[in-house]
Computed example of a mutant assay.
Amino acid sequence: MVGGLNMDLRIRVPRLPSPGETVPGGRLDRGTGGKGANQAAAARRLGARTAMVGVMGDDEFGAQVSATLAEAGVDLAGVATVGGPTGTALILVDPAGENMIITSPGANGLLRPEDLGALSGRLDSAGVLLLQLEVPIETSTAAARLARAAGVSVVLNAAPLPTTVDDSLRELIGLADLLVVNETEAAGLIGDVAERLEGSDPLEYASALRHLGPAEVVVTLGARGAVLAGSDGRSRHLPTFPIEVVDAVGAGDTFCAELAVARATGVRELDAAVRRACAAGALATTRPGAQSAPSRFEVDALLAAPERPAPVSGGGAGRTGHAP
């Protein structure tokens, strides 16, 4: 894992505010976050040996992040500490589990390509390299090149998506074996193509994204599950699991973690890997917090349940049936 480490500051609110509006909220909760840290902790809970490469600040937040990940069993030998603040996320969560998130990169922005020595030493035994966009793109690109040279599969969760999709981001996407995005990120990546596809089936978005270079693409649809476009050229939809939503924060990271774990542990069929990811993401919404991933046993149990899950109509998190 090469990615961001944050401290999450979360407040539950009766509803998400409109621009310029003040909404009274509940208690301020703190917890370890950052897409890289979330996915690393989730992958470890899902049964994979996980090593993290990143940067955090020398503040109280950094100490808490380090302690939490160490307790989760994540290898932190590749995490450096620098002077200054640790990355921070401000999160609002409404009663339906929907959320609004603002991030401040802090130390995450200081991870440079020359800091990837710890990654090189771990690729020989790695099954998958999982990346996001919370550290500089040139650093993630350098990591992807190292992985490709070592014969290690690259899974890229292209989030949070920058406001401008430039050649450096396109290069990174082209190095990914598997690209994971939500609907908004998918539209941002394909730009004018998204305008031409507006109102069409999301399957077309997944197919269009494959033209950016990845052999496989997954587009998550919230309560509607996910669509995928595989190397066989076919696109298809997988429904979500009907489940009661408590907090959708971290569900997407759990989805990505299980997708990477499935691939690292030999689940080669994309449909099967995405099905496991949908189950893990759905279970993550049943408990609060960004690092609320289920265990491998819980995922297996949900997949083995006798009643097959049915598609859930509508968008967003909703109160039931949520995949990231």
Rank of each mutant, 00 (worst) to 15 (best):
N6G: 04
L209T: 00
A208Q: 00
E195C: 02
E258R: 02
L111G: 05
G250N: 01
R308E: 02
G151L: 14
L111Q: 09
A80I: 11
A305P: 03
T86Y: 08
P324C: 12
T68A: 12
T285C: 03
G109D: 08
V219F: 06
R287C: 07
P17Q: 14
L302Y: 01
V13L: 12
D247G: 01
A142C: 12
R15A: 14
D300N: 05
L283H: 00
A42N: 02
R170V: 11
R12T: 11
T286F: 01
G174P: 12
I137A: 05
V55F: 01
E204A: 09
L178I: 07
L228C: 07
A70Y: 06
L9C: 08
G252P: 00
P113D: 11
A40E: 08
V2D: 10
V181W: 06
S292I: 10
A150N: 11
E138Q: 14
A257M: 07
A226T: 07
L178C: 00
T320L: 13
A159R: 02
T81C: 04
V245A: 02
I173Q: 04
D232L: 07
V218S: 02
N38Y: 09
R148H: 04
R27E: 15
G78W: 15
V267C: 05
V79K: 03
A194P: 09
R145I: 14
V152K: 09
R287S: 08
R196V: 06
E21K: 12
G26F: 13
E185S: 00
R170M: 06
T265I: 09
